[in-house]
């Protein structure tokens, strides 16, 4: 395992964040959420980010995907610096590069299951003859092929999240950003869905950046990070992993 990581670390990182700062200004008060975050995610690697509530995990994901702007630092998608990209370019690159899974599913209620999955391709103007096949294949992988014409309101929470997973993968994104994807689900369904997400991302070759409170799920990733006081620290995996003996690692 270590050798494979060492090899991929020499490649161009898929996602690279350097010295990222973010401060919110709210009614005269400044909230320093991120104070110099560094992160490098090689292709195909999955990472988890833990942290207390309010530590800035969601904010960090929003910054990574360019949904929120940062005042200092650099973010590169496949080497592309996103600072200074115009709105149109940013939207297009984001749509191609990322897939999103949230705690809530945000499915569009007016359209059925397969149409929700296809929406991802539609939004990028990439709807092709083959798109439908891909959507159906993805639904098959999440176990909902027989319900592809179902109205989404009739699905359970776990099933809805599966649809959201299929939708996130529709455009063959390089990175899946998952912000507490199992937060609304019961324990059993949560681990089912989590297994599914990890499995399907591996199969589709997408890296997974998972924000979670669940240490079990965090451990399923290649690397674990902790966001604390505005700084991202490696907890397990990477160079840090090799430097510190297991018995000194936090949470283990």
């Amino acid at each position: 395992m270590n050798t494979s990581r060492t090899v991929s670390a020499h490649d161009l990182p898929l996602l690279e964040v350097a010295d990222l700062h973010k401060t919110f200004h709210d009614s005269g008060r400044s909230i320093h959420v991120l104070n110099g975050v560094n992160l490098s995610v090689p292709d195909g690697r999955n990472i988890s980010i833990c942290g207390q509530s309010g530590s800035g995990k969601s904010t960090f994901l929003n910054l990574i995907s360019g949904l929120e702007s940062h005042e200092q630092g650099s973010i590169r998608w496949n080497g592309l610096e996103i600072m200074g990209l115009n709105e149109r370019r940013l939207a297009r690159e984001r749509g191609r590069f990322f897939g999103f899974i949230f705690q809530a599913y945000y499915l569009v209620p007016e359209i059925n299951v397969v149409e929700n999955v296809l929406l991802a391709a539609r939004l990028l103007g990439r709807l092709r003859q083959s798109s439908r096949d891909r959507a159906v294949a993805l639904l098959e992988q999440v176990g909902l092929k027989d319900r592809m014409r179902y109205p989404v309101q009739k699905l359970s929470g776990g099933e809805r999240q599966r649809v959201a997973v299929a939708r996130a993968l529709m455009n063959e994104p390089k990175v899946i950003l998952a912000d507490e994807p199992t937060g609304n689900l019961d324990e059993n369904t949560a681990s089912e869905v989590m297994d599914l997400i990890v499995g399907i991302c591996r199969k589709q070759g997408s890296s997974l950046i998972l924000v979670t409170h669940n240490p079990l799920f965090a451990r399923m990733m290649d690397q674990e990070y902790l966001l604390h006081e505005g700084v991202l620290n490696v907890v397990r995996g990477g160079d840090y992993d090799r430097m510190i003996p297991d018995e000194f690692k936090p949470g283990m």
Binding site: R88, A91, R94, F98, A104, V108, L123, L124
Partner: peptide
């Protein structure tokens, strides 16, 4: 609101 947020995140232009 949240659906719209997601649609924009997925690459739609506002």
């Amino acid at each position: 609101t949240r659906e719209i947020g997601l649609i924009v995140a997925m690459g739609a232009r506002p």
